[in-house]
Design a binder for these strands. Structure first.
Lengths: 195, 195
DNA sequence: GTCTATAAACCGATAGAC
DNA sequence: GTCTATCGGTTTATAGAC
């Protein structure tokens, strides 16, 4: 174990986690069957139950991986160059696979995940990290005179996070990226950015 | 058949539709099994396959019922008293079972529904109706000087619809209504309402 | 119209060989 | 560690009596 960023042919365990993560993203908890995971991962059944105690254990590992990736992306955007407002705009305009949606947000719609404290935790944590970074950027933007000082940062942050998550729902309903893009542009208008 | 609003003890068909609707709302397409529908509806298996060709047919009927109810609620809000902005605020502040979420929006997260043109249609239509009413109200609010004339109504409408749908996701992640309420208040702040 | 009985496929998990 | 075989339960229907 080096613990470093050495990229190799993934072992069975990593392939299982990644396969589960992809299935969970696209088809949710109930749609992610052990059989489907094995087919996608190219791993045998015995191997899966050797590394994980069962489906919930495997799902938790996959969730933690998605949470880790999303939090890294959030940190990259909000510790990057630019003013507070520029970081907010950068977050809203991130390149996204709109019709696939958010790998973490998807989990918040799964009753089996939401009902279980342990399975819900990675989702809760990730939205917490997002909200904190957005709120801090709003505060910075206000200090710089880029945003109205009367805005409450935590509220604005929640509204902006919701626009992104809700935009995915609107887009899926029409099977088109346009509703998502309209919602993002609408949020930018309300922030006073695009005019 | 009177076609009127005569309320009676529901027949088997209506009970099946309502049972399916509730299950779909809480547990999604895969979580809504014929067996569960029968238990909740108090109807036998033969009866179900007499009235409906199968699960997709029953799900479609349930979707249309949810769409009908949500569209009626939308029309009630946007044809009510008040200025354009007041109607928008009324929509945002509607009483909602936040942790249960939106009975129609829920469907947009279901791959089995989104992938099927017929099953997706009631969702598409309902968000279309919502967007039109919101956009019209924005236009009216601009004409009355209540909202900035530079806002693009369809964009603002999409952003507001997304705040509501996304707010449900944030709330479920924390199993608390607070993130939802923060997002709504944030949207009101951005509209210049609450200060 | 509504019922019970049956069925083929799939689900999540276990057993035990190698 | 990974494999194959097997298990009891559930899913989405179909058949046929009443």
């Amino acid at each position: 174990m080096y613990g470093g960023a050495v990229e190799k042919t993934p072992n069975a365990k990593d392939r299982l986690v990644e396969g589960t993560r992809q299935l969970l993203w696209d088809r949710g908890y109930l749609g992610t069957s052990p059989t489907a995971i094995l087919r996608r991962s190219g791993v045998g059944q015995g191997s899966m139950y050797h590394h994980f105690s069962g489906k919930p254990d495997l799902v938790l590992a996959a969730e933690r991986r998605s949470a880790e990736l999303m939090q890294a992306q959030i940190r990259a955007v909000f510790t990057g160059e630019g003013t507070g407002l520029e970081r907010i705009v950068a977050y809203l305009l991130l390149e996204r696979d709109v019709l696939r949606g958010c790998s973490v947000g998807r989990l918040a719609g799964d009753p089996e995940i939401v009902a279980d404290e342990t399975l819900r935790e990675p989702v809760r944590e990730t939205f917490g990290v997002l909200g904190e970074h957005l709120a801090r950027a709003v505060t910075e933007a206000q200090a710089a005179g880029e945003l109205d000082a009367s805005l409450r940062p935590e509220r604005t942050a929640a509204a902006l996070a919701a626009v992104v998550q809700g935009g995915y729902a609107l887009a899926r309903a029409e099977q088109s990226v346009e509703p998502f893009e309209r919602a993002i542009l609408g949020a930018l208008d309300l922030l006073g950015v695009s005019p």
